[in-house]
Structures are given as structure tokens and as C-alpha cells.
Measured scan of single mutants.
Amino acid sequence: NKFNKELQWATWEILNLPNLNEEQVKAFIDSLRDDPSQSANLLAEAKKLNDAQA
């Protein structure tokens, strides 16, 4: 389904953001699992944090 694909994509993207530490990655992945419908928003937040920590 749509959420499953978005969840998989967001998870992959977050795992590959180079500037997030392990705790941050875990927190984003946990949030994705808690509410897959928020995957686009969570991915945007993760990318923003990744850029800020570059």
C-alpha cells in the first residue's frame, strides 16, 4: 500500500543521511514506525536536521 512504500522510502533515506548521529536516526525511525502516515513530514524534518548539522 501507499503508506508502506512511503515508509520504506523514508526509512532508507533517513538511514542514508550522513550528518545524523545514531540516536537521531533511531528517533526518526521509531517515529516512522509509530505513525507511518507522517513519513513525508518526518523525512523533511530529518533532512532539515541533516543540513543544519552539515
Rank of each mutant, 00 (worst) to 15 (best):
S39A: 10
S37Y: 06
Q53P: 04
I14F: 03
K2L: 06
Q24T: 04
L32E: 00
E23R: 07
K47Q: 12
A10D: 03
L17E: 00
A46D: 00
I14Q: 01
F3N: 15
D35S: 10
I29N: 02
N16A: 11
K47S: 05
S37W: 07
L7Y: 05
L20K: 00
E23N: 11
A40K: 12
N41E: 12
L43Q: 03
K5N: 11
L20N: 00
E6Q: 05
A40V: 10
A40R: 14
K26D: 12
K47L: 08
L49G: 01
A46V: 02
D30H: 09
T11H: 04
L43A: 06
K5Q: 12
K2S: 15
D51A: 11
L7R: 01
F28D: 00
A46T: 01
A46H: 00
L15K: 12
N21R: 08
I14Y: 01
Q53M: 13
N1R: 03
K26Q: 10
P18N: 09
N41D: 07
L17Q: 04
K2P: 13
L17V: 01
K26N: 13
D30F: 06
R33I: 14
A10W: 05
L17N: 01
P18E: 08
L49S: 03
K47I: 08
D34A: 13
A44N: 07
A40S: 13
K47V: 09
L17Y: 07
W9A: 14
L49H: 03
D35Y: 06
A10K: 03
T11I: 14
N4H: 14
K2Q: 15
N41Q: 10
P18G: 06
E23D: 10
Q38F: 06
Q24Y: 02
V25H: 05
K48H: 09
L32G: 01
S39K: 05
L32W: 02
A27D: 12
E45M: 14
A10F: 14
K47D: 02
A44Y: 07
D51S: 08
Q24S: 02
S31A: 13
P36M: 10
Q53F: 07
D30T: 09
E22H: 13
W9N: 11
A44Q: 14
L7Q: 03
D34I: 13
N19Q: 04
E6I: 14
W9I: 15
E13P: 02
A46R: 00
K26L: 06
A10S: 04
W12I: 08
Q38S: 11
N50I: 01
Q38V: 05
Q8V: 10
K48M: 11
S39V: 14
K48T: 07
L49M: 09
E23F: 11
N1Q: 06
Q53Y: 07
S39E: 03
A54G: 11
P36W: 04
D35R: 08
N19W: 12
N4F: 14
W12F: 10
L7K: 01
Q38G: 07
L42W: 05
K2T: 05
D35P: 01
S31V: 06
A54Q: 13
A54T: 10
V25S: 06
P36I: 13
P36Q: 05
A40L: 14
E22V: 13
K2H: 15
S37L: 07
L15F: 04
E45F: 08
N19S: 07
Q24N: 02
E6P: 03
N50K: 01
K47R: 13
W9D: 10
L15V: 06
S37A: 12
Q53W: 07
K2A: 15
L42H: 04
I29H: 03
Q24E: 04
F3G: 15
A46M: 02
A52D: 08
D34Y: 11
L42M: 08
I29P: 00
N41H: 12
A54E: 09
W12H: 13
P36L: 13
F28M: 05
L49D: 02
S31R: 10
N41Y: 11
N50Y: 01
L15M: 12
D34T: 08
R33K: 15
E45R: 09
L42F: 06
N1H: 03
E6L: 14
K26R: 10
A44T: 11
S39Q: 04
Q53I: 10
D30E: 12
N21S: 05
N19M: 10
F28N: 00
L20I: 04
I29V: 13
E23T: 12
L43T: 05
D30W: 05
K48E: 08
E6F: 14
N1G: 07
N41I: 11
K5Y: 03
L42E: 01
P36N: 03
N4R: 03
S31K: 14
N1K: 04
E45L: 10
T11S: 05
N50T: 01
N50V: 01
I29F: 04
P36T: 05
E13H: 10
L43P: 01
A10Q: 03
F28Y: 06
A10L: 07
F3M: 15
N41K: 12
D35E: 06
E23L: 12
L20G: 00
E6T: 04
A10M: 06
K5R: 03
F3Q: 15
K47P: 00
E13V: 13
L42R: 06
D51Q: 11
D34E: 12
E45G: 05
L20A: 00
T11D: 03
A27I: 12
N1I: 03
Q8R: 05
W12L: 07
S37F: 09
Q38N: 12
N50D: 11
E22A: 12
R33V: 14
T11R: 05
S39T: 08
T11P: 01
N41R: 13
L32N: 00
D34V: 10
S37V: 04
A27S: 14
E13T: 08
A10G: 03
D34R: 10
L32K: 00
D51G: 08
A40Y: 11
D51K: 07
K47T: 07
L32P: 00
L32R: 00
Q8L: 08
L20S: 00
D34F: 10
N4E: 15
K26T: 13
D34Q: 10
N4A: 13
P18V: 05
I29Q: 03
K48Y: 08
T11K: 04
Q53K: 04
A52K: 14
W9G: 03
D34L: 10
K26Y: 07
A27Q: 12
Q53R: 05
Q8N: 04
Q53D: 04
K48I: 12
D51P: 01
A40M: 13
D51F: 09
K48F: 09
L43M: 08
L49V: 12
W12S: 07
N16H: 12
Q8H: 04
I14A: 01
L49P: 00
S37P: 04
L43S: 03
L32D: 00
E23A: 11
A44M: 14
N50R: 01
N16T: 07
E22K: 14
S37K: 08
D30Q: 10
I29R: 02
L43W: 04
E23I: 11
K5F: 03
L42G: 01
A54P: 10
D34M: 13
A52M: 13
E23S: 12
N19E: 04
D51H: 07
E45T: 08
N4T: 07
I29W: 03
Q24P: 00
L7T: 05
E6V: 06
A52F: 10
K5A: 05
E22N: 13
R33T: 14
L7E: 08
A40H: 10
L42K: 05
